[in-house]
Amino acid sequence: MIPPKFVYRRAGSAEEALSLVAEYGDDAKLIAGGHSLLPLMKLRLAQPEVLVDIGRVRELSYIRGEADHIAIGALTRYHDLEHSELLAEELPLLAHASGRVGDPQVRHRGTIGGSIAHGDAASDVPAVVLALDGTLVVSGPSGVREIPSGEFFHGPFETALEPEELLTEIRLPRPASSSWAFQKLTSRAIDWAVVAVAVQGRSVGLVNMGSTPLRATAVERALADGAAIPDAAAQAAEGTSPFPDRNASTAYRQHLARVLTRRALEEAGSRA
């Protein structure tokens, strides 16, 4: 399969990317690793006229320990997250979840920013960032703005990003609790999560339980109120309306959310 014709432009810097996006407007799509966009283009489900390649913007590939948070460049690859010593030490949840995305080839190309900007509720890392109370740093024609992850995901493949904006950095506060776990259920190991649950302390993120990545707020509330893990986990599907598909009905996904949340909380507890 061949993608439809387009014009390829490569950006050497974030600044250049912004000016190219400004130049082409709605006709342009940013491409980083390309593992979300290119398959869609080959299936002719996406037909951008211009591709602005930001894959070489090296200045956006980094993992840094700052005073009160970890800063991750948007173009940092899953592979780099998976193998980062800093993350292994400070944010093992993100390192671990990154290592379970796709397959090694995908992780050699796919980036954290690409995944977040794509806004797919079935992606693992957005829910992890949500559970970690991350902040997304975005550059655009009117300068830089910071968007809390809780306000970033608007709907299926819809985010707070404006067409002429570029996600540049993900800021993750150092977690108060070192307990963490990531539970993911897939058809095959290579597949997207049917449901996954990310836990950091008492924060719980849900993958594929609705049109956006979600926080299991009812569970978090119950835990804060001192509920036992099984009782809290029983509320994991509260307020969710996951789409039924070939892999799972709504009821099954909600069941999985409860089971995986309980297991994740127990696993996290064992790490505390």
């Binding site: 490569r10 080959k42 299936l43 591709l51 592979h79 397959d103 080839q105 995908v106 190309r109």
Partner: peptide
């Protein structure tokens, strides 16, 4: 496969495995 699932097209890009059906030639200039 065309969908970056099967890995038949795997090559090394700067020493790391990638699926060359999901990479543009232009991207690896």
């Amino acid at each position: 496969c065309d969908t970056s699932t099967c890995g038949s097209c795997t090559v090394l890009l700067n020493g790391e495995s990638v699926k060359s059906c999901t990479v543009l030639a232009a991207q690896v200039d």
